[in-house]
Each structure stands twice: as structure tokens, then as C-alpha cells.
Write a protein that binds this DNA or RNA. Structure first.
Lengths: 171, 171
DNA sequence: ATCCGTGCAAAGTCTTTGCAAATTA
DNA sequence: TAATTTGCAAAGACTTTGCACGGAT
């Protein structure tokens, strides 16, 4: 789970973003700052549309196009990470000041369990070297059934094949 | 890499699909059979559109809608597996008669290296049990740079942050 | 003063859906 | 025969883009 960021951390992120932009002759606009703040304040996974709605509710008007144009910038400068759970929606989560983590997705209730493990990174390194591959990041998603759903649906009751249909439904 | 399937394996897949359909009162139509065969003959990852084109070239007319309606069925019965490399495209690969495998994606040349490791499955099991999660499948994708691209772009030359922009471009 | 960015709406892409005609069990 | 499918085209959902105006350095 994402933890609450301190003002200090937020400031650091802003600096990072500002520098990233400056380095390539881009501008640190009011809108980009607004999006960055909203993004950092967002604890879990979110999608572009969600961000738009949240901003609207907060009384901050940022055009949808601007959001779609800003998110990739945040991804490129490392503040945001894209994650996909199988449906068409592009989701994001900020990794700034957080531990890298992976996900377990329940194919029945769609619950998402975040976990982090050094073992994953270690294994990734081992595997990469085997192919002379320079690993920089990874995504590890485990699909299956959470405890509650296993209880509710005893083995043998109905065969379960996890599919992407089982991913969180769009809206 | 996908290996060439034997006629026998293909026949087995057909039986599996037919039974899957029968069990839920669905029909094993000519079109579904056509799609299944094309899918099984497809060695690597493919997308719905690609499948349509291939079928057209082979002189087999199957409506696009039918393909989009058939693919999920094949996923549900376990013959196909969805994979996503970060772009919006839904890709598939058949897992029938193949070893489960994961991917390394080069963020620069977009090459895809397939690998399989028992360690991944073992780790997944360990992690799952830690959360009382019943793991059924997983996706492990390592992003970074392949050897050739590392050579071409010495460390320090240009900072590289793997993003989903680096995913294979759509057509 | 110059670029760059924003908004808006139109255009794109990929996917889904309604419906009548055609098939399958 | 009864129910499911197919094709086609229209509709949808999400994202990208062109352009004129406004804003940042």
C-alpha cells in the first residue's frame, strides 16, 4: 500500500520533475504541477479518467488532453509507473518514496494484494545475466484466488481458469 | 519460442475446445475451428488484427467480430493466454503443448526474449502462501536493455528509464 | 519575444454490440 | 426445431492530435 508522503518528499518529487523538464527545454507549468500533486496524493493505482474526476472535484480544471500529455512525462522521469492488470485501462501508481512492489490479483473478487520481495529482484538479476540482459525493472503479477474466495468456492466446485476477463471491470 | 505443434497435439487442443464449448451449451462452429487452427499455427505472440489478416491471406473469411468473440473463449478454456507488453494492444500466445515462459523486453530495440524458469514458479508459490493466496498463474516481465543495445549505448551516455513508450509500436 | 503548453473538439484505434440471416446440435 | 452464431455496421471506450490562444522562460 502506498504510504502517506511527507511534504518534504513531495518537494523532492517536484524538484525532480522540474529538473527533468528543464533539462529538455520543457516548461514547469501550473497544470503540470497540479497533476503532479494530485498524482502524489493518490495512494493506490489510478487511471487517467479517475485523475480527471478527482481534479474536477477538487475544483482544479485541467483538460483531459493535458492529463494524457502529462502522465507520460511523469512516467519518463520515474515518478510514475504504469501497471496493467489485463484490461484495456492504463493504470498508474507513483513509485516515488515507495518500495517497489508487485501484485497478486484475485481472479474472483478482483482484490489486489501488493507485496514486495527482495527475492524477486534477486531472481530477476540472475535470470537477466543468463541472457546477458541488463535488467532495469520488472513486473511480476500473480493471478489466482485470495483466501476468502477459495473458502467461498471449494476446489472442484467450479474449475477456475484465471483470465483477463477476471480483471477489474472498467468503471 | 513456440515449437511446431504435432498434428496430434492440435487434435488434442481441438478436443479440449470442443468439450469446453459443449459443456456450456455452445457450438463448435466452422469459424471457431478456423480461428483455433490459425491460432495454434501461430508461433509467437499475435494480436486480433494480425490474426484477421493472416486468415484473410489464407483465404479464410472470418468476421473481425467473430475473432474478437472467439479469442476470449480460447483464453477461458486455457488454450490461449493473454500477454501485454505495455502498449494498448492485447496480445495472445497459445500455451498449449508449450512450456510456460516469461519475457524480457528490451526498452531500446524492443526485442523480446522468452525464458522459462522453475525458480519463478517456486518463488511465486512461496510468495503466495505468505498471503494465503492460491496462485494459479503469473506474468513476469523484465524490462531493460539487451546486450546489443547496451553495447550500442554505453552506460552514462544517455540515462535510460524504461517506460511503456518503449513498448513495440502499434503497427 | 519565443517557444512551449493548454483547451477543445475532432479524429483515431481497438473492441464491443445490436440485429437479421445463417448454422449447429 | 430451437437456440446459438455470424457478419456487418454502428456504437463505445480510451487516447491522440490539430490548431489557435495563452503562458512560461
Amino acid at each position: 500500500m502506498a504510504k502517506q508522503l511527507t511534504d518534504e518528499t513531495i518537494a523532492t518529487a517536484e524538484n525532480l520533475f522540474r529538473e527533468y523538464l528543464r533539462d529538455r527545454g520543457l516548461k514547469y507549468t501550473h497544470e503540470r504541477k497540479t497533476v503532479l500533486r494530485e498524482v502524489l496524493g493518490n495512494p493506490d493505482h489510478f487511471e487517467a479518467e479517475q485523475l480527471l474526476v478527482d481534479l474536477r472535484q477538487a475544483g482544479r480544471r485541467v483538460a483531459k488532453a493535458t492529463i494524457y500529455r502529462t502522465l507520460p512525462l511523469l512516467v519518463n522521469c520515474g515518478i510514475l509507473k504504469q501497471v496493467q492488470f489485463g484490461d484495456k485501462l492504463t493504470r498508474y501508481e507513483h513509485t516515488f518514496g515507495q518500495n517497489a512492489h508487485d501484485h497478486m490479483v484475485c481472479g474472483h473478487c478482483h482484490k489486489i494484494i501488493e507485496f514486495s520481495s527482495e527475492d524477486v529482484v534477486r531472481l530477476r538479476t540472475v535470470l537477466a545475466s543468463r541472457f546477458r540482459f541488463h535488467a532495469l525493472s520488472h513486473r511480476f503479477q500473480i493471478s489466482g484466488l485470495c483466501w476468502e474466495c477459495v473458502q467461498a468456492a471449494p476446489a472442484g466446485e467450479r474449475p477456475f481458469v484465471p483470465t483477463d476477463d477476471a480483471a477489474p471491470r472498467r468503471r
